[in-house]
Amino acid sequence: MQRQGFNRAVVVLHWLLAVSIFFLFISSWWMMGLPLPSEELQFRAFPFQLHKNIGLTLVVLLIVMLYMRFKYPPAPPSAQDMTPWMHKSAILAHIAIYGLIFFVCISGYLSSAHTKWDTVVWWSFTLPRIAEANEDMNEFWGELHTYSAWILLALVAVHVSGAIYHSYRNDGIIRRMMRW
């Protein structure tokens, strides 16, 4: 028997990812306005470590979510809730969002890996260095990180608009991701 809605683990992970992604956006705009680091000025140390840790954890959570998503797939939405073109667009948008989350996280890590600052995983152990500090590479990956994050934000806005559209219609789509 197939469920119409998503698996409960997928639902919980979806909302955790949503809150984390918004936290990363909002907190990063603030932390980039902190003084540049020096021996005496350490304002950026905690926010940057937290930003990197949440980003790396997001990759793991997304992999788990996708695994559960494909292991326990929901039934396709009914034709009255979603026309075929809408369904195809929704699938494409989801693939783009998943791909961009991966890319934003990985490019952020690669940018950070080319600085002199280590990544300490949840303040417990230091990730082995994969590269020497290199300003050009740091800037290259940093710019990709920034621009892909803006594209992700735009797609999230489309995703949210879709959710609101279905809530106004009060159809079954919105309840697929809200199984409490």
């Binding site: 028997m1 039934a75 809730d81 079954g172 789509i173």
Partner: peptide
Amino acid sequence: MVSNDLNNSSTP
């Protein structure tokens, strides 16, 4: 077969 009809007309 599909379980749990999500077209819940009881939700205002």
